[in-house]
Design a protein around this nucleic acid. Structure first.
Lengths: 344, 344
DNA sequence: CCCCTAGTTTGCAACGTTGCAATGCCACGT
DNA sequence: ACGTGGCATTGCAACGTTGCAAACTAGGGG
């Protein structure tokens, strides 16, 4: 049985309340008493019971991180930052996986709310902001990823449309004209993918390059294997694409693998741009040119957002943008660059 | 304010206790009452308060997963399995990162214990089983990774020595003789690395190949960049190695990248074997031959272990082995295999 | 010598839930 | 009509903590 306040109180010869004060507001306790109590705490190895504390205080100091899959490198890297940033605030992080399924997202969001977390970071693939807003009350929610319209929920994301535009322009600038867009998920209400497609179209339109729908490749998920499949399908077109804008680095890495199998050289025959800047993309051969969201900033911003909402539950929905930059690497080098050279 | 049992009780015209019964043991409640109460629960959107429940029951249904870094693909993949397996048991998972630092491991292990988790899955890089055993009591701990001796704590791992032996034999069988071992971490008490080195030596000894210490490469961490550095250092030896046994796939991927930069062909000039079977290794060019632990089984086993220990806190420390297999892929093909072909 | 103040310490109640054991109710058998 | 047994429901207390406000102590001024 772990020691509780009472045990410590008896040992130190003070009241339970005083021990609680030593733990929570040591400055109001006389030095002598404080030391005596602290000694008793050490001796008994006392740790506050978080359940009791949460019950009494009405706060658990736990937040939920609800993502489609924690083993996708992007989410894993993000989670690492979130956990660190949470720790700096004295919070711990619950992880839940939705696999991107709508029912599961709904269930978890409802579940997580009763689950005694103080806030939820939610990365939806199927649910829209609207739907989420409607499930009112309880712990504040901050969404990852863009959303159409402004609900009552905050959302934090890079400017996907602009980023996709930048990425596509980069390919256009190096002379590519048949640029495929890989990563649409029409079976999900994936607003992020839509924004990226929109940005891709912006760039094509601006450059006067026709938007050939045969170059839009839908995928089931966003894993390596989907990238392989996408490239294989593209290879069957009458005319090969000369570049791929992949909506995630994992897709790009899959496409890269498929290119190798198809005997296509990257970037000579096909250039590749990815999204997310996952670690593996930096070390691939060739290294993957990618759009890098500022992940530490993203994590920090999301937590700040939650923090503010915990203080004031009535805040209106906000729409926060995280900076990003295009990291030009080997799979889609700068316009006139000489071939070869190390990763960025 | 979320509804509580009392609100529901009033609405349904029954006692608080009956509502509690409906929630926990519906079979003891008369059908009519049950339906009335369930309706009230729906209407008020009642969710049990987990803090109160945990306080009263003495169990939180939360387990802690303490790993060095959640963004390492191996741990991310493992976490995904652990979360899924936990969910099947109605548990949620807290994630904590130690960065492999000893003090931090100690702190978290102690912290997590007071933190109201029912059990801890702990993946140490610095602490030994001995040390962990000594920090007695409170929630049960199951360790990931091998440990010397048998403490009072369970540990679950693949047979690293055997696996390393198999991997090294594979390289020897294909004619390699100067095989480097990459991934020692002498600055940590990393027993896993030691076991892998031991297995590597077993294989060399058996084959009568001298164990050249210059081919043992220590690394700071186990990331891609460490693999790059290791390969670079190996390239400066008088005589190049003709194979690398890397203790993680990330190291192997880093080495692969370095080989490309050094103009070394894989596997023709240098063969690579990794460990962990992370997704990225399956799609690399060439794909990485690797030792694959059965991760789903590992997760399942760890949770079963915890479950048993929750029931009986006095169980002796156990030493559980998870199956593994060598996946032969392109970076170190089978002995007489023709070059080329797809990943496994 | 007493009162007041500031500085410490304390008791009580409550957070929402569930274990325990008691109570109430009804139908059945005698 | 009455006792009995079984099912359904209930009240009380407690889990460990902290908010609140009261109580106590000592020191200084009147």
């Amino acid at each position: 049985m772990p020691a509780n306040l009472k045990d410590v109180a008896i040992r130190a010869g003070v009241s339970v309340r005083t021990v609680s004060n030593v733990v929570n507001t040591p400055e109001v306790v006389a030095v002598g008493t404080r030391e005596r109590v602290q000694a008793a705490i050490e001796e008994l190895g006392y740790r506050p019971n978080v359940a009791a504390r949460a019950l009494r205080r009405g706060r658990s100091e736990v937040i939920g991180l609800v993502v489609p899959e924690i083993d996708s490198p992007y989410f894993a890297e993000l989670a690492a930052h979130v956990v660190r940033a949470a720790e700096a605030r004295g919070w711990t992080v619950h992880i839940e996986q939705t696999d991107g399924s709508g029912p599961r997202e709904r269930q978890l969001l409802d579940g997580a709310r009763g689950q005694g977390v103080d806030g939820v970071i939610f990365s939806p693939w199927s649910m829209t902001a609207d739907e989420i807003s409607r499930r009112s009350a309880a712990p504040p929610v901050v969404m990852l990823g863009e959303q159409p319209g402004v609900g009552t929920v905050d959302h934090v994301a890079v400017d996907n449309r602009l980023a996709a535009d930048t990425a596509t322009r980069h390919l256009l600038a190096s002379g590519r004209r048949r640029i495929a867009a890989v990563g649409l998920q029409p079976h999900l209400r994936n607003e992020t993918a839509r924004q990226r497609l929109a940005g891709y179209r912006d760039a094509l339109a601006e450059a006067g390059v026709p938007d050939d729908e045969r170059l839009h490749v839908a995928v089931e998920r966003l894993h390596h294997e989907d990238g392989v499949g996408a490239m294989q399908r593209l290879a069957q077109l009458d005319e090969l694409p000369d570049a791929l804008f992949c909506f995630t680095d994992q897709l790009a890495l899959g496409a890269l693998r498929a290119c190798a199998d198809l005997g296509l050289r990257v970037p000579e025959d096909v250039a590749l741009v990815g999204f997310d800047d996952i670690e593996a993309g930096r070390y691939a051969v060739p290294s993957i040119t990618t759009v890098a969201p500022d992940k530490p900033r993203l994590a920090e911003l999301v937590l700040t957002c939650l923090e503010e909402r915990m203080r004031d539950h009535e805040l209106p929905g906000r729409d926060l943008v995280v900076p990003h930059r295009l990291l030009v690497r080997e799979s889609a080098p700068a316009p006139g660059a000489a071939p070869g050279g190390a990763a960025g």
